[in-house]
Nucleic acid binder design. Structure first.
Lengths: 230, 230
DNA sequence: TGTTCCAAAATTTGATCACAAAATTTTCCC
DNA sequence: GGGAAAATTTTGTGATCAAATTTTGGAACA
């Protein structure tokens, strides 16, 4: 990872800034960079992480890195062992089952909460993202696929406007991000399936039950796919 | 808050240390102290929090306080405004509903997950805690009640041994802790109801459905009680 | 060859400080 | 007096460093 990683391109951009652009602090930028790398990049599960190591690569002082790492650790994205050492969390069967269950409980709920607020433009946006995902799948673009999949889910979830729950789900995604990236890196994007088209149809039809089923199934399939690689 | 708050007495102690006692770092101690205060103490919702202010009262340098505050902010226990300022989160109707929903989704699930692992000693422990709660209720001991209620729920949830989910639930509890403390402080402990006895009976009977109902209802009642004070 | 112990290196932690940003107070002008 | 602007104070941020802790590398020994 180099300094340039801090300003990563955004094929699937966030909702554009509405508030006045406030200059980001260094620890905030570093947090975003590390978060991106955990969700989409090549951070290896189990690998140790040091403040000095990250600071050297990002060409900043250890202090803002320390802030960012502390925050990511609190979010479960990094693992703090009793030894004061920090590492990328490894996946275990137990943790896998817990993440699976949590996603199955929270994510369909977020989707259903979003449904009453969904507008036509939202559906168009989701269709765009899903089309981009299909391109990534054809090209074998693993990182693009992961970015797209994340963008699809959270574009939908954010419509629910539930700060509390979405924060929990973000935390869970960061916990399996590095492992999922590892699996996809080995296995490639072939044979990847999702329920995005079904979800979009359910949104169009304002069919709450079908939407819940689609997201439930999407989570189930995605997690089942990577479950064999633990 | 004074330096002494760091070493708070534990009427409802955690499971005793099994690993070798490693000397806690300052930021860890401070984190625990602030966490206790958020869950049981008198931190007022909406009140601003400053690093120097906390550091002065705790008689430590601002650095470990900074670490602890960063962690609590990441956990949602403190609120970071764009202004770089931090405060105790205020309760809103929206946040209240989200917390209510999250608790209703996750906590009964944790209880049911715990059920197969529950041993006779666990049930005895829960009964002890519930008895202590009754004493607090009679005496109008608000902090004692809140400590007891937290101890009861998490003693049960920890039996599920689900690190991922319990971390999320801890985070949610810290988000309504200060507000609940405020309400109880105003209203007192009279007319407080719970479903702890029902939960204990369900545990004894290994009745999964009854346990789920008891925890669901306990969460619903507790949240309903404070809902009017927003 | 494998194990234990000790020295060296690397790392986190906590303190201190300068700087930047924000909030607060004061001043000034109408 | 009331409101805008400027000065002051407060506060978070980031850099640097010493101390404490942990890991690592190697020597000594069986």
């Amino acid at each position: 990872m180099t300094k340039d990683d801090i300003e990563t391109y955004h094929q699937f951009g966030e909702a554009e800034e509405t508030a006045e652009a406030r200059p980001l602090t260094a620890h905030e930028r570093i947090y975003q960079a590390l978060r991106e790398r955990l969700l989409f990049g090549g951070f290896l599960p189990g690998k140790a992480v040091t403040l000095r190591g990250l600071a050297d690569h990002l060409e900043v002082s250890p202090m803002p890195v320390r802030d960012a790492v502390r925050r990511l650790t609190a979010e479960g994205a990094l693992e703090s062992h009793g030894n004061r050492r920090v590492s990328i969390p490894a996946m275990t069967n137990k943790k896998y089952r817990e993440i699976n269950l949590t996603r199955s409980l929270l994510e369909p709920e977020l989707a259903v909460m979003a449904l009453p607020n969904v507008q036509e433009a939202d559906i168009q946006r989701l269709i765009e993202i899903d089309d981009a995902i299909d391109v990534c799948l054809e090209n074998g673009d693993v990182e693009g696929y992961m970015r797209g999949n994340h963008a699809f889910h959270f574009a939908l979830y954010e419509i629910a406007r539930s700060d509390v729950i979405i924060r929990l789900v973000e935390s869970v995604w960061m916990q399996f991000g590095p492992f999922m990236r590892l699996v996809y890196g080995r296995h490639g994007t072939a044979n990847l399936v999702d329920q995005h088209k079904q979800a979009i149809e359910a949104l169009k039809a304002k069919d709450s039950l079908a939407l819940r089923t689609a997201i439930s199934e999407d989570v189930r399939q995605g997690m089942f796919f990577i479950g064999d690689y633990i």
